[in-house]
Write a protein that binds this DNA or RNA. Structure first.
Length: 727
DNA sequence: ATATTAGTTTTTTTT
DNA sequence: AAACTAATAT
């Protein structure tokens, strides 16, 4: 095994194979290289069977890439290696052992939209007004509880004295019961039910504990409690666990990720060894300086020293646009200016998916190829969800959520009231909706016409399900289209919208054809549904097609690009308004900024817009505090000889954020002189010149009262004046 | 049962 | 601005 391409520390991380090991890997420090070499080393040098290794990555794409790299290293002997996300690994265990927890192995996986449907239905049945209590919020509460391994019963015990939780308890109970009845699991259940199986059946536990002699987990800083517990359980046999992560890149708290997992690794695993990878091979010195200066503002952080041997490279480009459209045009100009060969050397990173729209518009208008990752996902379109719901129902007929979605699609005259009656019947007999169809003649409340329509639907499903186990997804798909008349209905309606829908269904079909081709070993309906629901945004990224990449900062984790645009760097947007209220949330936003900056290899572009449309209204946001945290001298210099950073100070609006506090020491920034009476963009006048050092003695309504040494007390508009806060 | 309309809500990030 | 929901008309 050739380890000569690794540095001393990386090699150490590879060669320590036994016992618990935590690799603290700074951004761009070659952790993928360590992981791939380590697995290759285990197979080649330690004669470990690939089937005895479990490697967990954050996305399926990362798993795929790593697998390819390992096969290159060892010459293609990785058959049997378990490599994938927590969710896909759990799915494999669940399909084999679902019976242990009284599930059928044909269970359906519910995505977030399905979850919301279940919550809404539960709330309706419990007579809880969705105006008073947002179903999405409830879904989040339930999911967070699950991430902490809190079952509905535990949840009730924990909160039974708190009246605020009264409804949550009821909904959570009903929600979980519905999932069980529908033979379905949500994302969190995939983890938790796997744990339940391992805890319930010691044979299964010891089977997997013996199987997985070596366990490696990437992105450990973004694991949640149940994932942590699962890793602990699985590694309980051999205790060979290698966790790799970077606490500065923990950005999934909203999904239950707990940064403490990485901080407390030593406590959780006795005799754990720790290795720090601190040399960055990705970015220029300038980019790294910017990143380090931003992240150092996080107070709850353990300091580390990330360095690079690269030279400083180009300075950071900065642009203040007046509108989001103009910002997009700026990005386009810069891409054309710097592009040498391909477009996929450029990535546009933003905080929210909604921001992609302007970029799409401008790029389309100018015929610039682009690839958008995530966002309004293909699988979330109405017609696609319809077809998928059919497929889910075919596979798992007790899935009532899918049943209700398709019962009247395309329109076949079955109305809301009839479905309600069917529901009542199903509930009273303890049957699923599809099972109730088998006894449809017994529902006395239904009209003869309704019964006839229900029977027609039943026969459609029955005919598609016949000989099901001899069919692959494509066969089932074709049958669904044929028997339901989905496409012929759209052709009949013939509006522009329906034409694009037909296109989308065709695209879905070609996706299924591709799937069947590349999954010859298991082209089943069940596998197709699982793979598509567990697919991450980046998993659909196509490395072969050339286009500017557009993706959220979250999706960009783990990726790198020669040129990175960090756009929409405005207060309330980034950091997000929702996440800037508490220090803890703000620190996570800052980590997100750190992730964004460290994606760049050669050039970093930072931009923001003075005005931005939100909910059909134009808003004005201040410049992101994160820009101010990057030292001025790292920014490019414009024609006027000023650094862009100076320009930022001048344009800064009043009402500056928390920097201006009482008793803070201030000093005027040396070279920027502001004349009395000059006007600035916000239409305000600067009242005074300021020089020297002083102390803020009061600040109200955007006016600072500063006592300057030897110059007396002056009142100034906060933010307009280029003053620095000291200390 | 379905089409139309008026009113309301949405955007934080995702396996 | 667009997408969803509830009420009303057909």
């Amino acid at each position: 095994m050739d380890l000569s391409k690794l540095n001393v520390v990386q090699r150490e991380a590879v060669e320590i194979t036994d016992g618990p090991l935590l690799v603290l890997a700074g951004a761009g420090s070659g952790k993928t290289r360590v992981l791939t070499h380590k697995i290759a080393y285990l197979i080649e040098e330690k004669d470990i069977f690939p089937s005895n290794i479990l490697a967990i990555t954050f996305t399926n794409k990362a798993a795929e890439e790593m697998k390819n790299r390992i096969e290159k290293l060892i010459g293609g002997k990785s058959v049997g290696l378990w490599m994938g996300t927590f969710h896909s690994m759990c799915l494999r265990i669940l399909r084999r052992n679902a019976n242990v927890i009284d599930y059928n192995s044909d269970f359906t996986i519910y995505d977030v939209a399905d979850q919301n449907t279940v919550v809404k239905k539960a709330m309706k049945e419990l007579n809880i007004d969705t105006k008073h209590l947002n179903p999405k919020h409830v879904r989040n509460i339930i999911s967070m509880a699950k991430n902490e391994m809190i079952s509905p019963e535990k949840f009730e015990n924990l909160h039974k004295d708190d009246f605020k939780y009264f409804n949550y308890i009821k909904i959570y109970k009903k929600y979980q019961k519905t999932l069980k009845n529908n033979n379905s699991m949500d994302f969190d259940d995939l983890i938790n039910n796997t744990i339940a199986i391992l805890q319930k059946n010691s044979d299964v536990l010891s089977f997997y504990q013996r199987k997985f002699k070596y366990i490696l987990i990437d992105e450990y800083q973004d694991t949640n409690y149940s994932q942590y517990l699962l890793a602990l359980l699985l590694s309980g046999g051999y205790n060979n666990i290698c966790a790799v992560g970077d606490s500065d890149q923990s950005i999934y708290k909203f999904r239950g990720a707990d940064i403490r997992n990485i901080y407390e690794f030593e406590k959780d695993y006795e005799n754990a060894r720790i290795i720090k990878l601190e040399q960055n091979y990705r970015s220029t010195q300038t980019i790294l300086d910017a990143a380090n200066n931003v992240i150092k503002n996080n107070r709850s952080r353990k300091p580390k020293n990330l360095w690079t041997a690269k030279d400083s490279g180009e300075k950071i480009k900065y642009y203040n646009a007046y509108s989001e459209k103009e910002e997009a045009k700026y990005v386009l100009r810069e891409i054309e200016r710097y592009r040498e060969k391909t477009y996929n050397e450029f990535a546009i990173l933003y905080r929210t998916n909604a921001q992609s729209r302007v970029f799409e518009d401008v790029f389309l208008q100018n015929n610039i190829p682009y690839q958008m990752i995530g966002g309004l996902k293909f699988y979330e379109r109405m017609e696609i969800k319809d077809i998928l719901a059919y497929l889910k129902l075919i596979q798992n007929p007790v899935d009532n959520v899918s049943f209700e979605r398709v019962i009247n699609v395309p329109k076949r005259g079955i109305g809301k009231r009839s479905v309600e009656k069917l529901n009542e019947f199903a509930n009273s007999r303890g049957l699923s909706l599809y099972e109730s169809l088998l006894e449809i003649e017994d529902i006395s409340t239904l009209s003869a016409k309704a019964i006839k329509l229900f029977i027609e639907f039943r026969e459609i499903i029955r005919s598609i399900r016949s000989n099901l186990d001899t069919l692959n997804v494509l066969d089932v798909f074709d049958k669904v289209i044929e028997k339901t008349g989905y496409i012929s209905d759209l052709i009949l309606k013939d509006t522009i919208q329906d034409t694009t829908r037909i296109e989308n269904v065709k695209e879905l079909k070609s996706g299924i054809i591709d799937f069947v081709k590349s999954n010859e070993d298991d082209a089943s309906l069940s596998n197709y549904l699982a793979v598509t629901t567990l697919q991450a945004g980046v998993d659909s990224m196509n490395d072969d097609s050339d286009g500017v990449l557009m993706l959220t900062l979250h999706s960009a984790k783990g990726l790198e690009f020669p040129n990175v645009f960090l756009v929409g760097m405005e207060e309330n947007l980034f950091p997000s308004y929702m996440s800037s209220q508490t220090e803890e949330d703000l620190e996570e936003e800052r980590r997100l900024c750190y992730v964004g900056i460290t994606r760049a290899e050669e050039r970093l572009f930072i931009s923001h817009s003075s005005s931005r449309m939100l909910f059909g209204k134009t808003n004005r946001n201040q410049i992101s505090r994160f820009i101010d945290e990057i030292p001025e001298n790292l920014f490019d210099i414009d024609n006027s000889g000023n650094t862009h950073k100076t320009k930022i100070n001048n344009y800064n609006n009043y009402n500056s954020y928390n920097a201006y506090k009482k008793n803070k020491s201030v000093k005027s920034s040396g070279d920027t002189k502001i004349d009395e009476g000059s006007k600035y963009s916000a239409g305000m006048k600067v009242k005074h010149k300021i020089f020297g050092n002083g102390t803020v003695i009061d600040s109200e309504k955007g006016v600072l009262t500063i006592a300057f040494e030897g110059k007396g007390i002056k009142k100034l508009m906060a933010g307009i004046v280029p003053i620095e806060i000291v200390g």
